[in-house]
């Protein structure tokens, strides 16, 4: 499993638009699962509504993890996505 911490910089937090783009991205790694954790809660990044329901705001730190055959590729792409969009 690969993981990293990320602090949200977008003033709106993880809102619908980037959450949707994130979910789309996360679904594209086949058997490799991308998860988001915050305060002991873990959801799959592809679970769009659950991700939004975590209410992640600007300044919050989340842990992103990837698990599976393509985890290296997945974690890098997700890191790049977060840095560019959130």
């Amino acid at each position: 499993m690969k993981q990293f911490d990320f602090t949200i910089k977008d003033p709106l937090g993880i809102h619908a638009r980037p959450a949707g783009m994130f979910a789309k991205l996360a679904k594209g790694f086949g058997d490799t699962v991308v998860t988001i954790s915050k305060d002991g809660n873990t959801v799959k990044a592809s679970q769009l509504m659950k991700v939004m329901a975590m209410g992640i705001k600007s300044g919050h730190t989340i842990t992103v993890a990837a698990e599976g055959p393509d985890e290296d590729k997945a974690i890098e792409e997700v890191r790049k996505f977060l840095e560019e969009n959130l």
């Binding site: 619908a16 638009r17 959450a19 949707g20 783009m21 979910a23 789309k24 799959k44 592809s46 679970q47 769009l48 509504m49 659950k50």
Partner: peptide, 19 residues
Amino acid sequence: DEAAVLFETHAMFVEDEDF
């Protein structure tokens, strides 16, 4: 693009696993 992404997000809601 901004408005378009909203509809794409709606399309994802339609298939959302938990929903």
